[in-house]
Simulated scan of single mutants.
Amino acid sequence: MNPIFVLVSIIGLVITLWAQWKVRGNYQIWSRVRARSGLTGAEVARRILDRNGLYHVPVQMVPGSLTDHYDPTARAVRLSEHVYTSDSIAAISVAAHECGHAIQHKEAYGALVFRHRMVPVLNIASGLAPFLLMAGIFFKFTGLLMLGLIFFSVVVLFHLVTLPVEYNASSRAKKIMAIEGFVHGPEEERGVRRVLGAAALTYVAGALVALLELLQYVFILFFQNDRD
């Protein structure tokens, strides 16, 4: 068992668990606080979309918890059952965030467009990278390891491009909610910041873990070359 793998695995696990703990903790706290506007997540989403000319984008309910997302292929905002039906600060924050992605799509926001174009390449790279990396390490074949690094770099780049996409969507959501009166007062605004800020940490954690893994393989490549 390579100590580098062990160390990176432990660090990655700690970062991931911490991010998940922050998300679930803030979501649970603010899901118990009702917004004074009385609007549900579905109602907030519909109003935001309509006021941005996105009448054709449906708001759909999907099963599961924290399964909320914007589907760029179907051009649909999909909200988990709790977010769809609840009038909590957490629910309307998540709903507004997903609408932020729909607005990005309408405006052809650069980072979002680039991320969408990366998806076909990502699907290939993420499938091949682990096999190439493991084969390169096991057989001590530098060429395979280098090819695996190139493919894995695409995965890391996708994580990095995702960060501005998510932060921009949250920034749009906070501004829209304040302007439209979906939240009232500093306490509700603080709740929105806490919920969306914690959610963004999951993407930061994903990017950090991917970068750590990339550096791990780079180190192994140089170590292998030095031994050769």
Rank of each mutant, 00 (worst) to 15 (best):
52 N>W: 15
192 V>Q: 04
208 L>P: 03
61 M>S: 15
142 T>N: 08
10 I>G: 03
157 L>Q: 05
148 G>K: 03
179 I>K: 08
185 G>R: 05
4 I>D: 09
106 K>V: 04
46 R>H: 10
179 I>W: 03
96 A>T: 06
73 T>G: 10
222 F>W: 06
179 I>T: 12
24 R>Q: 14
17 L>E: 09
170 S>Q: 01
13 L>N: 01
228 D>G: 15
56 H>G: 05
155 V>A: 11
88 S>H: 08
77 V>F: 06
128 L>T: 07
217 Y>R: 06
219 F>W: 14
197 G>A: 09
211 L>A: 13
38 G>V: 11
66 L>M: 14
119 V>F: 06
126 S>P: 03
213 E>C: 00
119 V>W: 01
21 W>D: 09
190 R>E: 13
130 P>Y: 04
55 Y>S: 15
121 V>H: 02
148 G>N: 07
116 H>R: 15
83 V>F: 07
141 F>W: 15
120 P>F: 05
179 I>N: 05
105 H>I: 08
15 I>D: 02
86 S>M: 11
59 V>F: 11
74 A>I: 02
146 M>N: 12
116 H>T: 10
143 G>I: 08
45 A>S: 09
58 P>D: 13
91 A>K: 07
137 I>W: 13
134 M>C: 00
108 A>F: 10
57 V>P: 00
12 G>L: 04
221 L>T: 01
209 V>W: 01
133 L>P: 03
141 F>N: 12
88 S>P: 05
16 T>H: 10
70 Y>A: 05
224 Q>G: 00
188 E>F: 09
225 N>Y: 12
52 N>H: 15
37 S>I: 10
149 L>C: 09
64 G>W: 03
54 L>A: 12
178 A>F: 00
41 G>N: 07
107 E>W: 12
40 T>N: 11
57 V>F: 08
49 L>C: 06
192 V>R: 02
151 F>P: 01
